[in-house]
Write a protein that binds this DNA or RNA. Structure first.
Length: 500
RNA sequence: GCCCCGUUAGCUCAAUUGGUUAGAGCAUCUGACUCUUAAUCAGAGGGUUCCAGGUUCGAGUCCUGGACGGGGUACCA
C-alpha cells in the first residue's frame, strides 16, 4: 500500500487502453445524446423470473402479449444490422430482448449503438416469442441505467482462474455457473436456522467480539489494542462463555449467529474468520441438543434444496433423520481394535500412528488417536457421543461415570460440523479445570483458559443446560456440496496483490 | 510453516527435444445484415510470456531466488 509496485505506475497495455477507450467513447456519446450514463430510479419493473412465468401462457405466434418492464445487465449482445438481440440478466434469471430500429424509434436507436456487454438497462415492451421460438421482450422503449467501463470476462467461459474469482467476487457472481445460487443457498440456510430457533423460543443475541480473554475454544486469537483504554484485546474465538453468562441472567434460550476469528492456518476447510452458530437451552442437555441439531440440519437442507442422499468428498451421506448415534469409545474400538478403557492399549495403538505418548494425558492421546483413525471413516451425518472428560473442560461429566463427558460432535464426510455439551455449571469444578493445564498441551492448545468473570457468573447459578455450536461455513459447504470453504465465503482472505 | 503444481493478450486457452517475427477463440475497432441466441460473414489492431538474476549462439520452455494462487500436509484436542 505504501510503496506503489512498478506495474502500478506503468501505463496499461495498449489492449487494455483500446478496450477501455471504446467504452469511454460510448460513455461520451451517451452524454452527447443527453443521457445520464449512471441512470436513476427505474420503477415498476418486474423480476425476470415472473416475466418468464407470464410468458409461458402466451402462444408462440401471438402478437398481443402483455407489456412488461424489466431491468438488468446485458450479458450477450447479437447485432443483426438494424436489429439487436440481447440477453438481459437480473437476480432471478435471464431473458432475451429484441430492439429494432423501427420499433424503438429514431430517438432511442442511437443509444443502442452505445450498448456494451455489462451495461445495465431497463426495457419496456411486448412479451412474446421470436421466430426461432425464444421468449423475447420486443422493446418499445429503452432506458439506459448504468455504463460498464471495464471489459467483462469471456462470455462463454466466464471467470475460471480461482484467484480472480475470489478477488473479484462481484464478477464471479455475475459470470460463474451456480455461484450466485450457492450464496443464495447460504442465505436461505441461515434464515432456516434462525426460524427453527426462534420458533422454539430462542432469543437471538450479540456478544462482544473484542474480549479480554478469548475463551470457549482451543485456538490462537488475533490480538489488538484499544487506544483510549490502553489495553490489549483479543478477537473472540468462540461465542460460548458470554452466551452462558446470559443463561445465568435468565435468558433461558439464547443463540448467536456470528463471526469468530482464529489466527491459524488456511485450508479448504479453514478460513481465519468464519461464522458460528451457538445455541444454549436452560434445563436441556446434550440429548436435547441432538434433537435440535437434527431439526436445524433438516430445515437447512430443505431451505438449500439439498437432496436427501448424495455423495460429497467421496462419502455417501444421507440426511434422513434420525442420524445414527455412536459412543466415542465404541467407534475407537471398532476402527482400531484397541481397548479404549485401557490407557496402555490406547497408547500402544497410538504409537503405531506416530502419535507422541510420553508425558501426555491418556485422554489427549486417545483424542489424537481418534482423530487420526476414526474421523475420516465417518461419512455421516453421525453423532459421536460421550467424549473422554479430560479434553472437555467446559462439559458436565456423566453422574455415574466421571471420566466421560456429556458431549457430542456431529461428523459429516470426516469433518466436524457441530459440537454440543451438557454444559458444566459447577463453578468450583469449572475453576479447577481452568487451573489444571492438561498434560502435553500448551496454553494455545487448551480450551481451559481462566476467565474469572465467567466463574463468578457461574457462582450466581447457571441452570443446567444444553449447548450447541455449528460451523455455518462447513454446513453450507456440505449442503451445497462445495469442496472448499472459499466457495461459500463471499470474500475469503487473500494476501494483498502486489505485482513485480 | 513444509511439499507438489501453476502463472502466456482484457477473458478462456495453444506454442514439438531450447530454434525464425509467441498463435487461436471470445472481447474491441471498421464494414454487411430486421428473428439472432456462445449469431454469422469480411477485414484490422492488441503481448514486460508474474518479477529479478543466471546458463546458452538462441529461453515462454532449462537453473537460482522472489511474488501470488491451487492442491496436499502441519496447526486447528
Amino acid at each position: 500500500m505504501s510503496s506503489p509496485s512498478p506495474i502500478d505506475t506503468d501505463q496499461p497495455s495498449s489492449t487494455v487502453t483500446a478496450l477501455l477507450q471504446a467504452r469511454r467513447d460510448k460513455l461520451a456519446k451517451l452524454q452527447e445524446l443527453g443521457i445520464d450514463p449512471w441512470g436513476s430510479r427505474f420503477d415498476s419493473s418486474q423480476a425476470v423470473a415472473s416475466v418468464r412465468k407470464e410468458g409461458e401462457s402466451i402462444a408462440q405466434d401471438a402478437d398481443d402479449g402483455p407489456t412488461v418492464r424489466v431491468a438488468g445487465r446485458i450479458m450477450l449482445l447479437r447485432n443483426a444490422g438494424r436489429l439487436v438481440f440481447l440477453d438481459l440478466v437480473d437476480r432471478t434469471g435471464r431473458l432475451q430482448v429484441m430492439i429494432g430500429k423501427k420499433q424503438v424509434g429514431p430517438d432511442a436507436w442511437p443509444v443502442v449503438g452505445c450498448l456494451d456487454l455489462g451495461d445495465i438497462i431497463g426495457v419496456e415492451g411486448r412479451l412474446g416469442y421470436s421466430n426461432s421460438g425464444e421468449m423475447t421482450i420486443f422493446a418499445s422503449s429503452l432506458t439506459f441505467l448504468t455504463k460498464s467501463l471495464e471489459t467483462p470476462p469471456d462470455k462463454y467461459h466466464g471467470l475460471v482462474d480461482p484467484e480472480l474469482r475470489q478477488r473479484m467476487r462481484y464478477l464471479d457472481l455475475i459470470h460463474g455457473e451456480g455461484v450466485r445460487d450457492r450464496f443464495v443457498a447460504r442465505s436461505r440456510i441461515i434464515e432456516a436456522i434462525r426460524r427453527v430457533l426462534t420458533d422454539r423460543g430462542y432469543l437471538e443475541v450479540e456478544g462482544p467480539t473484542l474480549q479480554e480473554t478469548a475463551g470457549g475454544a482451543a485456538a490462537r486469537p488475533f490480538t489488538t489494542h484499544h487506544n483510549a483504554l490502553d489495553m490489549p484485546l483479543v478477537m473472540r474465538i468462540a461465542l460460548e462463555l458470554h452466551l452462558k453468562r446470559l443463561l445465568v441472567g435468565g435468558m433461558e434460550r439464547v443463540f448467536e449467529l456470528g463471526r469468530v476469528y482464529r489466527n491459524e492456518g488456511i485450508s479448504p476447510r479453514h478460513n481465519p474468520e468464519f461464522t458460528m452458530m451457538e445455541a444454549y437451552e436452560a434445563y436441556g442437555d446434550y440429548a436435547s441438543m441432538m434433537d435440535l441439531t437434527e431439526a436445524v440440519l433438516v430445515a437447512a437442507a430443505e431451505a438449500a434444496g439439498t437432496p436427501e442422499t448424495f455423495t460429497w468428498m467421496g462419502h455417501d451421506v444421507s440426511l434422513k433423520p434420525p442420524f445414527p448415534r455412536k459412543r466415542y469409545d465404541d467407534l475407537l474400538a471398532e476402527v482400531t481394535g484397541c481397548d479404549p478403557e485401557d490407557p496402555a492399549s490406547v497408547a500402544t495403538e497410538a504409537s503405531k500412528h506416530d502419535i507422541e505418548t510420553a508425558g501426555r494425558h491418556p485422554d489427549v492421546i486417545k483424542s489424537e488417536l481418534f482423530e487420526e483413525t476414526v474421523e475420516k471413516t465417518l461419512s455421516g451425518p453421525i453423532f459421536v457421543i460421550d467424549y473422554p472428560a479430560a479434553v472437555c473442560p467446559l462439559t458436565k461429566r456423566k453422574s455415574d461415570a466421571p471420566d466421560i463427558a456429556e458431549r457430542f460432535e456431529l461428523y459429516v464426510a470426516g469433518m466436524e460440523l457441530a459440537n454440543a455439551y451438557t454444559e458444566l455449571n459447577d463453578p468450583d469444578l469449572q475453576e479447577e479445570l481452568f487451573r489444571t493445564q492438561l498434560a502435553g498441551l500448551s496454553d494455545d492448545e487448551s480450551m481451559a483458559r481462566m476467565d474469572h468473570d465467567f466463574i463468578k457468573s457461574l457462582r450466581h447459578g447457571m441452570p443446567p443446560a444444553g449447548g450447541l455450536g455449528i460451523g455455518i461455513d462447513r454446513l453450507v459447504m456440505f449442503l451445497t456440496q462445495a469442496s472448499s470453504i472459499r466457495d461459500v465465503i463471499l470474500f475469503p482472505i487473500h494476501r494483498p496483490h502486489t505485482s513485480g
